[in-house]
């Protein structure tokens, strides 16, 4: 590592008890962050069956469900698509969202499990600020999710689901506020697309995959912080079936992952509003637009705001003096 670390090494080399602790500088923060993320990745790579089950789930949806629905659901030309697309192509960003959703919930479950083992407590005994530790832990989870997403996109690529070459990066704005928000949130009923950068020819074929990464990170962080908050307030989260029924399925089905929202609106205006209230819809749209070189402004605002909100709630819940853990006598506490 850096010169700073060497200096620390020398000052502590005596091995005796020193009372003044070393200062935690930038290098220390980085070492901590890297250590936490690397541990999540290592753990994931050591659990091969987890990798395959994470990959098989979206592939079953893609190969079987989407193929079956191809003839049932026609997708008209809606942004970001510039031509008719097959249902498989439409559903791919939704399945990417599903990977992020499952991964977030799974890591929140593992945190409940960790609470009972000493792992979570060891993390919280670290001298770094707790918010930093929790965000690092979440980004570790997101890194694992990114590995899964790109493995899935690679298989999908050979199933000829390939985002078109991106020649220009565009900003998309368009939003129709629901009735109950009218006057509070401005409507942008005339969708507009502004080009803000052009892409060098060499990067064009892969630009969709690169451009979607920030979208995946923010969306993953949003779902992860939601799951983290849940892990601190819900005691009986050990049961994955319960999480599936009460969190994953409602979030996944009441969203734009499987069907365009305008089609839901035709069948049920109420369901349409529920889907639009669901932050997961915006995560999926952010990913969908990202894969096609677009920034969907409204989705970006919603996802970033939700991330901040959920993260603040999670940090509050893990705060030693105010948090919910203290009130409940949690992580393995009590006695």
């Amino acid at each position: 590592m850096s010169a700073g670390a060497t200096a620390v090494a020398q000052s502590l080399d005596t091995g005796t008890v020193t009372s003044e602790p070393r200062k935690l500088g930038f290098a220390a923060y980085f070492a901590c962050f890297r250590g936490i993320v690397w541990r999540e990745v290592l753990r994931f790579l050591h659990q091969t069956e987890r990798f395959f089950s994470a990959l098989v789930r979206p592939l079953v949806w893609l190969f079987i469900f989407a193929a079956g629905f191809r003839q049932v659901l026609g997708v008209s030309i809606i942004p970001p698509y510039q031509s008719y697309v097959l249902y498989e192509e439409f559903v791919t960003p939704g399945l990417v969202g599903m990977i992020l959703l499952f991964n977030a919930m799974q890591s929140s479950l593992s945190m409940v499990y960790d609470r009972e083992t000493g792992t979570m407590r060891t993390l919280l005994v670290s001298p770094f600020p707790r918010s930093f530790l929790l965000v690092s832990k979440l980004l570790g989870g997101v890194s694992v999710a990114l590995l899964q997403v790109f493995a899935f996109l690679l298989v999908a690529y050979f199933w000829s689901i390939q985002p078109p070459p991106i020649t220009e990066l565009k900003l998309f704005t368009g939003y129709e506020a629901p009735h109950w928000l009218e006057g509070i949130v401005p409507s942008m009923t005339e969708p507009s697309i502004i080009t803000f950068a052009s892409v060098p020819a060499a990067l064009q074929p892969v630009m969709g995959y690169i451009f979607v990464i920030p979208a995946l990170v923010v969306a993953g962080l949003m779902l992860g912080s939601l799951a983290l908050f849940m892990s601190s307030i819900i005691k009986q989260l050990e049961n994955f079936a319960g999480v599936m029924n009460f969190v994953i399925f409602p979030m996944f089905f009441a969203s734009s992952a499987l069907y365009p929202l305008w089609r839901i609106r035709e069948s049920s205006p109420l369901l349409y509003e529920i889907c639009r209230f669901n932050p997961f819809s915006y995560a999926v749209e952010l990913i969908r637009f990202g894969l096609y070189g677009h920034v969907d402004l409204v989705s970006l605002i919603v996802v970033v705001s939700c991330t901040i909100l959920f993260l603040a709630a999670a940090v509050f819940a893990y705060n030693p003096s105010k948090g919910l853990i203290a009130r409940r006598g949690g992580p393995g506490g009590g006695a």
Partner: peptide
């Protein structure tokens, strides 16, 4: 009292993780 090390990882990997939690990385 409860276990704080990962069964799936090696001893060194575990120790490096815990060094990182205190901001210690690399050669040190």
């Amino acid at each position: 009292q409860s276990k704080a090390i990962d069964s799936d990882l090696s001893l060194l990997q575990n120790l490096h993780y815990h060094a990182a939690l205190h901001g210690i990385g690399g050669r040190e």
